Each structure stands twice: as C-alpha cells, then as structure tokens.
Simulated scan of single mutants.
Amino acid sequence: MAEIVILLAIRKIGIALGKAAEDQASVQFGRYGTQLLELQGSMGRVGRELRIMHDVLCQMDIRSRNNQVYEGWLEEVQKVAYVMEDMVDEYLYLVGREHDIGCCFFLKKGFKKPRSLLSLNKIASKVKEIEKDLSHLSDTKNRWVPTISNGNASNSNYIVKRSQDLANISRSLDEEDLVGVDKNREKLEQWLAGDDLECSVISLLGMGGLGKTALAANVYKKEREKFQCHAWVSISQTYSREVILRNITKELFKDNVSVLSSTLDMDIISLEETLKKYLEQRKYLIILDDVWDPEAFHDLSRMFTHNDRAVD
C-alpha cells in the first residue's frame, strides 16, 4: 500500500510542476518569483526522493517484511507521502482558485479541495519540512532497516510478488485516483472501438510506477462488455506458459462449468488448440499485464488467432 501512496504523491507533484500549473502560478504569484521558484525546487527534490524511495521499497529483501523496524519505517514514509499529497492539493487549489484551468481543472482529476486554504509561504515552509523529514528517513533506513540482499532467490521472488501485488492494487483504483490520464484513456478507447477487423496488438510501454496497469484496468472495465469474450491475466517476471494458458481458460470459460471442467485434464497442446478454436469465432479482448520481456508475448501469441472479429 505504501508504494501506491508514494506513486500518487509523485504523480501529483508532476502535475504541480507541469507547464499548465507553472504558467498559472507565474500569473498568480508573479511578484513572489523567488519564493515560487524555491517552492517548485523543493517539490522537485521531494518528488525525486520519493521516486527513489519507491524503487527501494520495490526491491526490499523479503526478510524485511513483517520486521517491526522496517514496518515502522515504512509507516513513517507513508505518513510523509500523505502530507506531501495534501500540500500539493493546497498548492494547486491556491494556484487555480480564480481560474477555470486551476481549481476546477485539477479537482476534477482527483484532487480534493483543501480543508483550510494555506498561503504560498506556509505551503513552501511545510514542503521544506517534508524535504527534511525524507532526508531523515533516508538516514534512518541506512542505520536501522535491513539492507537489500542482492541477487538471491528470495529477493527475486519478493520482487515478483510485490509486482503482482501492486498490479492487483492498481486494478482496484477508482477513477478519481487516476490523475492526468484522460488523453491516453480516450486514445485507448478509440483504438478499441475502431472498425479494423484485423487482430490488433496495443502495447503500453514504460518504466514501473507510471500507472500502466491502472489505466488499462480502467479502460478494460468500461470496454470489455463490447466484446464477445474477454480475459485479464498477469504474466510477471517468471511465468509458466501452461499456467498462463490455464488462467486465460478460467477467465474465458468461468460461466461455462462443463467446458471448463473438460479442459482440466488437457495437455498444453490440446489446451492451446481449444483456446484457438474458441477465439477464432469471437471478437475478443485479452489483456496481458505485467509483461517484463517481449518474448513472453511472442511465446503466447500463437494462441491469438487472426480472424475478422478479433481485437487483442
């Protein structure tokens, strides 16, 4: 959960430092140029520190889980991320309170109206405190929190598990939690609604933490009923082709118990042929989430038959 809280704070900082907010801030607080630049600089440093913390959390040794010291440290990081998120909301509300591209624009994208409006100086002071708190937490981690164990099997397994956990959390995010994704969401919806009858592959590429799974899940929930059948499966860093095929089968045949039962004893070749025959008669949507290596897609793509109904 802490990783998601941190990511939301990072995304809000990104919008606060984006061109639209920056231009509006320059108009609103032009006479306070020095203070504004200092605040924006502090937000940028906090954002970078949170990004590094997020990356570290995703690689922490599995032995650190359920460790009282680690959990206590993680709780403090989460608290600071929450406070930073509140300060960004305060800043954006303050920047845009008299203009449509400010308050209303940002609040519609998941920002909550602050409980009490702070001044620019108070926000800047609070962000400075957050910057110091993060620096202190980094020092505390180095002194007391168990270090990452590089290269061992338990660490690799933990990374895979955390990746799957984060993907599951991302899929459950509400629409108001998605910030700054409207254009990409509209583009995905247009592609899925296209009249192209060829089997299409849509790839969402980017480093971890950008919100690819959350975006895909949001579109998937809205668009899946337009297809005759649909499935969502996670691949992860290490995967079994047979397990993935069986998971797709469970998704596609979850409402047909007799057909699903008949696939239980099938070998992988028979299973693949059954899926191909089923899909070639239908317009389908298959989401392969958390793909670490393009070879994983190529390994599974033989099943995705090309017909005049398919969208993949």
Rank of each mutant, 00 (worst) to 15 (best):
T34G: 06
N256M: 06
L120C: 00
V83T: 13
D255C: 08
G44K: 10
L92A: 05
D195S: 10
D312H: 11
E22R: 07
V56Y: 07
E242P: 00
V201H: 07
S163E: 05
L260I: 01
R309C: 12
D61W: 09
T213D: 02
T249H: 06
V291A: 11
A231K: 06
S262W: 03
A2R: 03
Q164E: 15
F111A: 09
I159W: 04
S234G: 07
T34L: 15
Y82N: 14
G180S: 14
E189T: 00
Y284K: 06
R224G: 00
E280A: 01
L173N: 06
L215R: 01
K132Q: 09
L178K: 03
L36K: 08
N152S: 06
K276V: 13
S301K: 12
L36T: 01
N168Q: 13
G18Q: 03
E131D: 15
V46Q: 03
N142T: 02
T274G: 05
E38Q: 12
F105A: 05
L271F: 04
V27W: 12
F105G: 03
L192V: 00
G208T: 04
E223P: 02
D86H: 06
I15L: 15
R65W: 09
K113N: 07
H298T: 08
S270I: 01
I6F: 01
H298V: 08
R31C: 13
R63P: 00
K122M: 11
M1K: 08
Y158W: 08
L215C: 01
S200I: 12
Y32H: 13
S240I: 13
E49W: 00
K132Y: 15
G14R: 07
P146G: 05
E38W: 08
C229T: 15
Y70T: 11
Y284N: 06
Q28L: 07
D195E: 15
T249K: 08
Q228V: 00
S170C: 09
L245C: 12
E131K: 13
S172M: 14
